[in-house]
């Protein structure tokens, strides 16, 4: 198959880009696809930490872009899923060391080796973010059901449609919305933007709804994507659904809820 380059972006920080990149990457890889996740957040890398690979970083994206290391030397293969690799960001170098030509060279080389290339964008609309989206075929826009996040997503959609390589060539950029930290009960009570409100405002198709869950923090605490650490949890299942949609499956949109154990049901809370 032709490799697909996906940018995971949002504009706003802290909405779950890195968590979602790690979770989707692992979900795709678990179904046998060859996946690489690239951290574009130069100076503030975190994908390595969320993936539990922080102690194995030797070379990074900038080293490869600058020709100081071979791509194969910089890629870190996941210990749990062997079709999953990570290309970390540099923690010490300046983001100006990223050049559009350098990024193109790396992406072109990765396209030959992988089925999916997931680019984890930094927050903001500066160079790091525009580099991460530049060569994307498809964008996953991570949005929280909250006014500032929706506004920033709208801004990012504007950039995707005007500044990327595809946009410049006059081609269509596929954009998909991933709503994270959704609380169905609060939305039902009118305390949180509803899914339909967000879809109407942003006017892009929905890739998935990730429910708010304490399991997401637990997964990042231990350095394991939620789709590996708790694949049966509500957010885990929601990310698997989203990954299947990326692979072209049509699934009914559901908001998974936590499955309570018998004890949990009896005592009204989840038993860990």
């Amino acid at each position: 198959m032709m490799a697909k380059v996906i940018v995971v972006t949002s504009g706003k920080g802290g909405v779950g880009k890195t968590t979602s990149t790690a979770a989707l990457g692992a979900a795709l890889a678990k179904s046998g696809q060859k996946v690489v996740v690239i951290d574009f957040d130069v100076g503030l890398r975190n994908l390595d930490l969320v993936r539990g690979a922080e102690r194995r970083v030797v070379f990074d994206l900038i080293n490869v872009v600058q020709g100081e290391a071979k791509l194969a030397q910089a890629l870190i293969r996941d210990k749990r899923v062997d079709t999953l690799s990570l290309l970390p960001a540099s923690q010490t170098r300046d983001k100006d060391a990223l050049t559009i030509e350098g990024v193109e060279k790396v992406i072109t080389e990765l396209r030959e080796k992988f089925d999916w290339i997931l680019c984890d964008s930094p927050a903001g609309i500066e160079k790091g973010a525009t580099m991460a989206m530049h060569y994307a075929d498809l964008a996953v826009i991570v949005t929280n059901p909250e006014v500032s996040s929706v506004r920033d997503s709208d801004r990012i959609i504007g950039l995707l449609d005007s500044k990327t390589a595809r946009a410049v060539k006059g081609e269509r950029m596929d954009k998909h919305l991933l709503i994270t930290r959704f609380d169905p009960a609060r939305a039902e009570r009118g305390e949180m933007l509803k899914i339909d409100d967000i879809l109407e405002i942003l006017a892009i198709p929905l890739l998935g709804i990730i429910p708010e869950s304490p399991q997401v923090l637990t997964a990042s605490n231990v350095g394991s994507p939620i789709t590996l650490n708790s694949p049966e949890s509500a957010p885990g299942r929601a990310y698997f659904d989203a990954a299947k949609r990326l692979m072209g499956e049509t699934l009914p949109m559901r908001i998974p809820s936590e499955r309570k154990s018998l004890l949990g049901k009896l005592f009204g809370r989840r038993v860990a």
Binding site: E146, V147, V150, R151, A187, R189, G190, E191, M192, L193, K194, D197, I201
Partner: peptide, 10 residues
């Protein structure tokens, strides 16, 4: 409820 206010403002 505050959600409709959020939607209108946005």
């Amino acid at each position: 409820s505050s959600a409709p206010v959020a939607r209108d403002r946005l």
